[in-house]
Amino acid sequence: MKVQLFNKIVATIAGSMLLAIGINLFLIPYNVLDGGVIGIALILNYMWKANIGITFILCSLPILVLAWFKYRHFFFSSFPGMIISSFFIDLFSDISHTLLAPLHIHPITSSFIGGIFMGVGFGIMLRNNISTGGTDLLAKYIADKLSVNVGFTIFILDGLIITLGGLLFSPRTFFLSILTITIGGLSTGVCCYRRAPREVTLPWKT
Protein backbone atom coordinates (compact mmCIF):
# COMPACT_ATOMS: atom_id res chain seq x y z
CA MET A 1 0.00 0.00 0.00
CA LYS A 2 2.82 2.40 0.91
CA VAL A 3 4.70 1.51 -2.27
CA GLN A 4 1.61 2.17 -4.38
CA LEU A 5 1.06 5.54 -2.69
CA PHE A 6 4.72 6.45 -3.20
CA ASN A 7 4.47 5.52 -6.90
CA LYS A 8 1.38 7.70 -7.29
CA ILE A 9 3.12 10.67 -5.65
CA VAL A 10 6.21 10.29 -7.84
CA ALA A 11 4.07 9.85 -10.98
CA THR A 12 1.98 12.92 -10.15
CA ILE A 13 5.04 15.12 -9.60
CA ALA A 14 6.95 13.80 -12.62
CA GLY A 15 3.93 13.98 -14.93
CA SER A 16 3.03 17.48 -13.75
CA MET A 17 6.57 18.73 -14.32
CA LEU A 18 6.58 17.35 -17.87
CA LEU A 19 3.22 19.04 -18.55
CA ALA A 20 4.55 22.31 -17.18
CA ILE A 21 7.69 22.13 -19.34
CA GLY A 22 5.69 21.26 -22.44
CA ILE A 23 3.28 24.15 -21.93
CA ASN A 24 5.71 26.87 -20.87
CA LEU A 25 8.72 26.00 -22.97
CA PHE A 26 7.18 24.78 -26.23
CA LEU A 27 3.49 25.80 -26.53
CA ILE A 28 3.20 29.31 -25.08
CA PRO A 29 5.95 30.95 -27.19
CA TYR A 30 3.97 30.19 -30.39
CA ASN A 31 0.40 30.50 -29.05
CA VAL A 32 -0.15 26.76 -29.43
CA LEU A 33 -3.11 25.12 -27.70
CA ASP A 34 -3.79 21.80 -26.06
CA GLY A 35 -7.21 20.23 -25.76
CA GLY A 36 -9.42 20.18 -22.69
CA VAL A 37 -9.48 22.67 -19.85
CA ILE A 38 -5.76 23.37 -20.29
CA GLY A 39 -6.60 24.56 -23.80
CA ILE A 40 -9.23 26.92 -22.41
CA ALA A 41 -6.73 28.24 -19.85
CA LEU A 42 -4.19 28.81 -22.64
CA ILE A 43 -6.74 30.74 -24.72
CA LEU A 44 -7.49 33.03 -21.77
CA ASN A 45 -3.76 33.47 -21.17
CA TYR A 46 -3.08 34.42 -24.80
CA MET A 47 -5.99 36.87 -24.82
CA TRP A 48 -5.73 38.51 -21.40
CA LYS A 49 -2.51 37.16 -19.82
CA ALA A 50 -4.61 35.19 -17.33
CA ASN A 51 -2.63 33.01 -14.94
CA ILE A 52 -2.75 29.53 -16.48
CA GLY A 53 -2.58 27.46 -13.30
CA ILE A 54 -5.25 29.41 -11.44
CA THR A 55 -7.44 29.61 -14.57
CA PHE A 56 -7.07 25.85 -15.00
CA ILE A 57 -8.34 25.30 -11.45
CA LEU A 58 -11.23 27.76 -11.79
CA CYS A 59 -12.38 26.28 -15.10
CA SER A 60 -12.14 22.77 -13.63
CA LEU A 61 -14.24 23.52 -10.54
CA PRO A 62 -17.67 22.96 -12.18
CA ILE A 63 -16.42 19.65 -13.57
CA LEU A 64 -15.05 18.62 -10.17
CA VAL A 65 -18.42 19.43 -8.58
CA LEU A 66 -20.01 17.15 -11.17
CA ALA A 67 -17.42 14.48 -10.32
CA TRP A 68 -18.20 14.76 -6.61
CA PHE A 69 -21.86 13.93 -7.18
CA LYS A 70 -21.70 11.62 -10.19
CA TYR A 71 -18.26 9.99 -10.25
CA ARG A 72 -16.82 10.20 -6.74
CA HIS A 73 -13.84 7.96 -7.52
CA PHE A 74 -12.92 10.27 -10.42
CA PHE A 75 -12.87 13.26 -8.05
CA PHE A 76 -10.33 11.65 -5.73
CA SER A 77 -8.11 10.53 -8.62
CA SER A 78 -8.26 13.95 -10.32
CA PHE A 79 -8.09 16.58 -7.59
CA PRO A 80 -4.44 16.01 -6.53
CA GLY A 81 -3.28 15.84 -10.15
CA MET A 82 -5.07 19.07 -11.00
CA ILE A 83 -3.63 20.98 -8.02
CA ILE A 84 -0.05 19.77 -8.48
CA SER A 85 -0.13 20.30 -12.26
CA SER A 86 -1.40 23.84 -11.78
CA PHE A 87 1.35 24.52 -9.25
CA PHE A 88 4.13 23.40 -11.60
CA ILE A 89 2.61 25.18 -14.62
CA ASP A 90 2.78 28.47 -12.74
CA LEU A 91 6.14 27.65 -11.13
CA PHE A 92 7.72 27.14 -14.56
CA SER A 93 5.95 30.11 -16.14
CA ASP A 94 9.15 32.11 -16.63
CA ILE A 95 11.35 29.41 -18.17
CA SER A 96 10.08 30.02 -21.71
CA HIS A 97 11.63 33.49 -21.68
CA THR A 98 14.97 32.40 -20.25
CA LEU A 99 15.53 29.04 -21.97
CA LEU A 100 13.74 29.10 -25.32
CA ALA A 101 14.97 32.44 -26.68
CA PRO A 102 18.57 31.32 -27.37
CA LEU A 103 17.41 28.07 -29.03
CA HIS A 104 15.42 29.56 -31.94
CA ILE A 105 13.23 26.46 -32.27
CA HIS A 106 10.98 26.30 -35.34
CA PRO A 107 7.26 26.47 -34.43
CA ILE A 108 6.55 23.02 -35.91
CA THR A 109 9.46 21.47 -34.03
CA SER A 110 8.41 23.23 -30.84
CA SER A 111 4.81 21.98 -31.19
CA PHE A 112 6.05 18.46 -31.88
CA ILE A 113 8.33 18.41 -28.82
CA GLY A 114 5.67 20.06 -26.68
CA GLY A 115 3.22 17.34 -27.68
CA ILE A 116 5.71 14.67 -26.62
CA PHE A 117 6.33 16.29 -23.24
CA MET A 118 2.62 16.67 -22.55
CA GLY A 119 1.72 13.24 -23.86
CA VAL A 120 4.36 11.54 -21.74
CA GLY A 121 3.32 13.60 -18.72
CA PHE A 122 -0.31 12.59 -19.08
CA GLY A 123 0.72 9.02 -19.83
CA ILE A 124 2.81 8.67 -16.67
CA MET A 125 -0.12 9.83 -14.57
CA LEU A 126 -2.75 7.78 -16.36
CA ARG A 127 -0.57 4.67 -16.07
CA ASN A 128 -0.82 5.14 -12.30
CA ASN A 129 -4.58 5.88 -12.37
CA ILE A 130 -4.07 9.62 -11.88
CA SER A 131 -5.82 12.32 -13.86
CA THR A 132 -5.87 16.09 -14.04
CA GLY A 133 -9.64 16.07 -14.47
CA GLY A 134 -10.90 18.43 -17.12
CA THR A 135 -13.11 17.73 -20.08
CA ASP A 136 -12.56 13.95 -19.94
CA LEU A 137 -15.12 13.73 -17.15
CA LEU A 138 -17.48 16.13 -18.94
CA ALA A 139 -17.17 13.96 -22.04
CA LYS A 140 -18.01 10.85 -20.02
CA TYR A 141 -21.09 12.54 -18.55
CA ILE A 142 -22.30 13.67 -22.00
CA ALA A 143 -21.57 10.24 -23.45
CA ASP A 144 -23.57 8.55 -20.69
CA LYS A 145 -26.51 10.91 -21.15
CA LEU A 146 -26.57 10.69 -24.96
CA SER A 147 -25.41 7.07 -25.23
CA VAL A 148 -22.52 7.94 -27.53
CA ASN A 149 -18.88 6.87 -27.56
CA VAL A 150 -16.83 8.72 -24.93
CA GLY A 151 -13.74 8.83 -27.19
CA PHE A 152 -15.76 10.51 -29.92
CA THR A 153 -17.13 13.00 -27.37
CA ILE A 154 -13.61 13.90 -26.18
CA PHE A 155 -12.55 14.36 -29.81
CA ILE A 156 -15.47 16.75 -30.44
CA LEU A 157 -14.81 18.81 -27.29
CA ASP A 158 -11.09 19.10 -28.01
CA GLY A 159 -11.85 19.93 -31.63
CA LEU A 160 -14.16 22.77 -30.57
CA ILE A 161 -11.47 24.24 -28.29
CA ILE A 162 -8.77 24.03 -30.96
CA THR A 163 -11.11 25.49 -33.59
CA LEU A 164 -12.02 28.37 -31.27
CA GLY A 165 -8.32 29.08 -30.78
CA GLY A 166 -7.77 29.07 -34.53
CA LEU A 167 -10.61 31.54 -35.04
CA LEU A 168 -9.42 33.83 -32.24
CA PHE A 169 -5.74 33.83 -33.19
CA SER A 170 -4.59 32.45 -36.53
CA PRO A 171 -4.64 29.42 -38.83
CA ARG A 172 -1.10 28.74 -37.65
CA THR A 173 -2.35 28.33 -34.09
CA PHE A 174 -4.98 25.89 -35.33
CA PHE A 175 -2.61 23.67 -37.31
CA LEU A 176 0.18 23.72 -34.73
CA SER A 177 -2.35 22.82 -32.05
CA ILE A 178 -3.63 19.90 -34.14
CA LEU A 179 -0.04 18.68 -34.43
CA THR A 180 0.48 19.01 -30.67
CA ILE A 181 -2.61 17.07 -29.62
CA THR A 182 -1.95 14.39 -32.24
CA ILE A 183 1.63 13.82 -31.07
CA GLY A 184 0.48 14.13 -27.47
CA GLY A 185 -2.18 11.49 -27.96
CA LEU A 186 0.29 9.09 -29.55
CA SER A 187 2.82 9.68 -26.75
CA THR A 188 0.16 9.08 -24.10
CA GLY A 189 -0.86 5.87 -25.82
CA VAL A 190 2.74 4.62 -25.87
CA CYS A 191 3.18 5.41 -22.16
CA CYS A 192 -0.07 3.71 -21.20
CA TYR A 193 0.52 0.64 -23.35
CA ARG A 194 0.82 -2.46 -21.24
CA ARG A 195 2.16 -5.50 -23.00
CA ALA A 196 0.00 -8.56 -22.50
CA PRO A 197 1.78 -11.31 -20.57
CA ARG A 198 3.10 -14.06 -22.77
CA GLU A 199 1.43 -17.40 -22.40
CA VAL A 200 3.73 -19.83 -20.62
CA THR A 201 3.80 -23.34 -22.01
CA LEU A 202 4.19 -25.76 -19.13
CA PRO A 203 6.14 -29.00 -19.63
CA TRP A 204 3.05 -31.14 -19.06
CA LYS A 205 0.78 -29.00 -21.22
CA THR A 206 0.27 -30.25 -24.79
Rank of each mutant, 00 (worst) to 15 (best):
A50C: 15
L138A: 11
L91D: 07
T153G: 01
V10Y: 04
G123C: 08
P107R: 04
L58A: 13
L179F: 13
S78A: 14
L146E: 03
T153K: 01
R72P: 03
K8Y: 00
V3D: 09
G165Q: 00
C59Q: 14
Y46K: 13
S16C: 10
A41G: 00
L167Q: 08
N7F: 06
I178Q: 00
A11Q: 02
F76T: 12
L61Q: 14
T173I: 01
S177T: 07
V200E: 12
G134D: 08
T182R: 14
G119C: 03
F122H: 02
I183R: 10
T182I: 12
K140D: 05
T98H: 15
V148A: 02
I40K: 02
L61V: 12
G189C: 12
L160W: 03
G115P: 02
T153C: 03
P203Y: 11
R195M: 13
P197D: 10
L25W: 09
Y30V: 01
Y46E: 08
F175M: 13
L61D: 12
F87D: 12
H106I: 14
Y71G: 02
Y193H: 10
G165L: 01
W204R: 15
G121P: 04
S177A: 08
G53Q: 14
L99T: 01
S96W: 08
H73F: 13
L160Y: 05
G134M: 05
Y141S: 10
I116M: 11
F155C: 03
K49Y: 14
R198H: 15
I21A: 06
I183Y: 15
S170A: 05
Q4I: 13
P62L: 04
L64W: 13
I156F: 04
